[in-house]
Design a protein around this nucleic acid. Structure first.
Lengths: 162, 162
DNA sequence: TTGATAAACGTAACTATATAACATATCAAC
DNA sequence: GTTGATATGTTATATAGTTACGTTTATCAA
């Protein structure tokens, strides 16, 4: 058991489950989960945090699985476009999806101190943003929702004055 | 009158108004609206769209106002940190705030075809995201909310089948 | 099983975005 | 005017992402 993503959980099990879900999805949708793509996803799942493309690339290099930027960017494009991973725009980094295969609009809680990221769910077409879009005639296709703040752990340590 | 930000408006007047508001705010809060900072804000207001830092820098260069990246990044840091401009994470670009000086949580509607950006307002601490934050013990300090889709103009031209 | 086609990969070079570090200048207060 | 803080100028470098092109591998139909 580790403390990851603000919560305790059995990490090895969560990696296995996620990989299995992606494998199934790819089989059913005739997508090629090639060695590079699979390994990039595994790296993201194992670390269980947002990683820069070049950080992932360094790991691949050490394993002889491709050493140039396009290799990792192509794998990430695949993973992101099918919802197996997400890009955190605020960090220029990538993170494995916590529930791959399911349709969802991800939102993220990013800790500004430890850079940990928790994925959650948002309904951006509801609420004020959806209202604004309708009013202006804008059609929302996708949304980036990233909250920055303090995770529970850092919150405790951060304010000795509190 | 131009078509900007999805709507017609008197652009020169909007630039003057915005600059005046920022000037007042800076005077009242003892902030230095130096020539470089002021000019970067003016450039953003005049263009009235999201601009990359290097695009702004090119303009500054042409005017002899500083030619190296740190110049523009420092000016942008100032403008963004005081809410006079915003960074669009999705575009790695910057845009002038449409109502500087007022407390607000900006949200953006970004057209994926013409890259036009409209600023609106969101209440991310309400709704599902706020609920998720409370449930996990995360304290939201700031939020990036950027919807990607089609603006009214591009929507018309984009689907001849519709 | 083979040939055609499309998809994925390997690599080099390059472009774009952003920051570090340090010297100089300017401003504000005493 | 001297001092400390704030802002600027400049060089170099770090980080992020793309283009282009040739090769390999998978898919599928004849």
């Amino acid at each position: 058991m580790d403390m990851i993503g603000f919560e305790q959980h059995d990490h090895k099990r969560c990696v296995r489950t996620a990989i299995a879900a992606v494998e199934t999805y790819c089989r059913e949708h005739k997508l090629q989960l090639t060695p590079v793509r699979r390994r990039v996803l595994e790296i993201l799942l194992e670390r269980h945090r947002a990683m820069g493309a070049y950080e992932i690339l360094d790991t691949l290099r050490g394993e002889g699985l491709g050493s140039q930027p396009p290799v990792v960017y192509r794998a990430l494009d695949f993973l992101v476009s099918h919802g197996f991973a997400h890009k955190i725009e605020r960090l220029n980094a990538f993170i494995a999806c916590t529930h791959p295969g399911q349709e969802h609009t991800p939102a993220f809680l990013i800790c500004r101190l430890c850079d940990s990221v928790a994925e959650t769910h948002a309904e951006p077409t509801r609420g004020m943003l959806g209202r604004a879009a309708i009013d202006t005639g804008f059609s929302i296709e996708q949304a980036v929702v990233e909250a920055v703040g303090l995770c529970p752990q850092c919150r405790e340590g951060a304010h000795p004055c509190a």
